[in-house]
Each structure stands twice: as C-alpha cells, then as structure tokens.
Deep mutational scan, measured.
Amino acid sequence: GIDPFTGEAIAKFNFNGDTQVEMSFRKGERITLLRQVDENWYEGRIPGTSRQGIFPITYVDVIKRPL
C-alpha cells in the first residue's frame, strides 16, 4: 500500500551513484522519498522496482516532502 509518510519527487537530472548505498536514476523518473538523511541527501526508492538508496537533494524536484 501507500505509506502516508513518504514523499515524492521527480528526477531533474541523471544521477549515477558511486557506491552501493547510492541509487542511480534517470531524468524524469518518479521517486518515492523515504526520509531526508541530512541537508544534502534523501533516501528513496523507485516504485515498482527493487532500487533503493540515497541521492543528492539537488538532483530532484520535490513534489511532497517525506514526514
């Protein structure tokens, strides 16, 4: 089901994660935001896939912030 505490964002740019914990994505992908890790990073996942990880806040347009 849908978790009411998650947020939502759209990727503004392609992001290629450097490490296992970073999640790569392509511009235009819809991302579920799980939490804000710190002032620069979100943790999120791509709905319908097993992809999950952290990524820079500046790479996405936030539609709804996670609670």
Score class of each variant (00 low, 15 high):
Tyr42Met: 12
Pro47Glu: 14
Gly53Ala: 01
Ile57Trp: 04
Ala9Gly: 12
Pro56Leu: 07
Asp18Ser: 12
Glu43Lys: 05
Thr32Cys: 09
Arg45Trp: 09
Val60Glu: 00
Tyr59Thr: 08
Ile46Ser: 02
Glu43Pro: 00
Val62Gly: 03
Gly28His: 05
Tyr42Arg: 01
Phe25Glu: 01
Gly7Ile: 08
Lys12Ala: 07
Val21Asn: 13
Val21Phe: 14
Thr6Asp: 10
Thr49Ala: 05
Asn14His: 10
Glu8Tyr: 12
Arg45Ala: 11
Ile31Arg: 00
Pro47Gly: 08
Thr49Arg: 03
Ile57Thr: 09
Arg51Trp: 02
Trp41Pro: 00
Pro47Tyr: 09
Gln52Val: 09
Glu39Asn: 12
Phe25Ala: 02
Arg51Pro: 00
Gly17Leu: 03
Gln52His: 13
Leu34Glu: 04
Val37Glu: 03
Ile31Lys: 00
Gly17Met: 04
Phe25Tyr: 01
Asp18Leu: 15
Asp18Ala: 14
Phe13Ala: 13
Pro66Asn: 10
Pro47Asp: 15
Phe5Tyr: 14
Asn40Gln: 12
Leu34Arg: 03
Pro56Ile: 03
Asn40Cys: 15
Pro66Ala: 07
Val60Lys: 00
Asn40His: 14
Met23Asp: 01
Ile2Cys: 15
Met23Ser: 01
Thr32Ala: 08
Arg35Cys: 12
Ile2His: 13
Ile46Thr: 02
Ile10Leu: 09
Arg26Lys: 13
Gln52Glu: 08
Thr58Trp: 14
Arg45Ser: 11
Glu43Trp: 13
Phe25Gln: 01
Pro4Phe: 13
Pro56Lys: 04
Gly44Arg: 00
Gly17Ile: 03
Asn16Gly: 07
Lys64His: 05
Ser24Ile: 03
Phe5Ala: 10
Asn14Pro: 08
Gly44Gln: 00
Ile46Lys: 02
Gly28Cys: 09
Thr58Glu: 14
Asp3Ser: 10
Gly48His: 09
Gln52Pro: 01
Thr58Ser: 13
Arg26Ile: 14
Val62Lys: 04
Lys27Asn: 05
Asn16Pro: 06
Val21Met: 14
Gly53Phe: 02
Leu67Asn: 15
Ala11Phe: 05
Phe55Asn: 00
Thr19Cys: 14
Pro4Trp: 15
Ile63Asn: 04
Pro4Val: 12
Gly28Asp: 06
Pro66Thr: 06
Leu67Phe: 05
Phe13Val: 11
Lys64Ser: 04
Phe15His: 05
Gly44Pro: 00
Arg45Pro: 01
Ile46Asp: 00
Val37Ile: 13
Met23Val: 05
Gln20Val: 13
Leu67Tyr: 05
Arg45Leu: 12
Thr6Asn: 14
Thr49Leu: 03
Pro66Gly: 09
Thr32Arg: 07
Glu43Phe: 13
Ile57Gly: 11
Thr58Cys: 15
Asp38His: 08
Phe55Val: 09
Trp41Val: 04
Arg45Thr: 10
Ile2Glu: 15
Leu33Trp: 02
Leu34Trp: 06
Asp3Cys: 15
Gly1Trp: 09
Phe25Lys: 01
Ile54Lys: 07
Ile46Val: 09
Lys12Thr: 07
Gly1Pro: 13
Gly7Ala: 06
Asn14Cys: 08
Glu29Ala: 03
Thr58Phe: 14
